[in-house]
Write a protein that binds this DNA or RNA. Sequence first.
DNA 1: AAGTGGTCTAGACCACCGT
DNA 2: CGGTGGTCTAGACCACTTC
Lengths: 234, 234
Amino acid sequence: MSAKYKLIVDEIERDILDGKYNSIGKLPTEEELVATYGVSRTTVRKAIGILSSKGYIYQVQGSGIFIRESILKGYISLETLKGFTRDFPNREIESKVINIEVIQADEKLARKMKCDIGTNVYYVKRLRIIDGNTFSMEYSYYNKDIIPYLNEEIAKSSIYSYILDDLKLNIGFADKLIYADKMDEESAKYLGLAMDDPALVIDNTVFLNNGNIFEVSKVIHNYKHAKLLKLATF
Amino acid sequence: MSAKYKLIVDEIERDILDGKYNSIGKLPTEEELVATYGVSRTTVRKAIGILSSKGYIYQVQGSGIFIRESILKGYISLETLKGFTRDFPNREIESKVINIEVIQADEKLARKMKCDIGTNVYYVKRLRIIDGNTFSMEYSYYNKDIIPYLNEEIAKSSIYSYILDDLKLNIGFADKLIYADKMDEESAKYLGLAMDDPALVIDNTVFLNNGNIFEVSKVIHNYKHAKLLKLATF
DNA sequence: AAGTGGTCTAGACCACCGT
DNA sequence: CGGTGGTCTAGACCACTTC
């Protein structure tokens, strides 16, 4: 059973994406939402706060709750982090598994993953293709003590769905280091770009709820297609 | 008079940065914080929630509030958005104002800034230098109806401090589009890089609390020095 | 079982926006 | 001024971690 405020977030999010409020550009007042969902004002405000932090809306004291009209599609959202399916609706997303194997963590990797040297780790190399365009190369490491099993079948569809829905693990948070660099030879080859073309790189460290690291990855994006969208709040 | 939860956020943030909790890696329990600050648990939790979203801490049910040990210095934080002074403490930050003038918005700019064609707009070109290294080129537009006055003196120090402290405007939120591209000729020249070197680009649209756009800008970063840090929460 | 965070309520009062 | 969001309280009960 999910929390009430989460159900309200999901419902309002769906309504916004469906364009239910496009004509007026506003949500109902907090008071009305309280009546609609039959919960306390605190619970409504909790849901509203989450939708604000996701970049969907903003509140103006004395005035109301307004829809934030940003282009939410076609860019990688740094807010929702729900994967390509959410960011690229109605687009053909393909994942080619180049390589998948179990290796032992050397000193450098062990330091990054905060695990012991020699820990078994899945190393996965994937090429992502969207609408037929090469989009990104992913070089990922998963701690096998946390993710006990992985295969090409899973890597081809969605590793995250597998972790969340099948392994029932709680993903907590992630550090993302974002920068530009020159393409390396291997990534350039797979992405169909020239060496020394620009690359948009993201180094990820992903933690479970309890603070343990289960994934470290480097994602090299095709600069011609990949753009990140950050909806910031002050 | 600032809100209680904001004062608590500031105090705990300072304590964390001062290393007060480094030895144990944990914050006191919510109950203890309630006693320390003499507020309700709801207020403590509001402060804790903000510190979580800023990436300082994470909570584990049944266990406690833990410090999130990420390198918070030397990278541009996509969370705090408090400017270079916060992101690069104890570093020498210099801003060279290349150009500052008032122009009239053409159709394209008017669309971006959601203002009328012909609206007076400040156009500011700045080169940012950190510790003697060329860091970024900023090409910014400010709506003169909202920012009535601007000069080289202000642009040389901090336009944001001026807007917040002197004009007393409430900055609300910002859209940031992040991507990699090849350097253009002008930026390459100022940054001391070659054309076709990679560039880390951010297109910003910045809104006041009430949803009005006061700034649109393009920032071209030196790929050798600029890295963005995003602390995400699921 | 005890400790600690997660969810939720009902209600009060304040601050800002628009008419 | 009425409408609407912002802050804050006191307390209840649940869920997870740790021992």
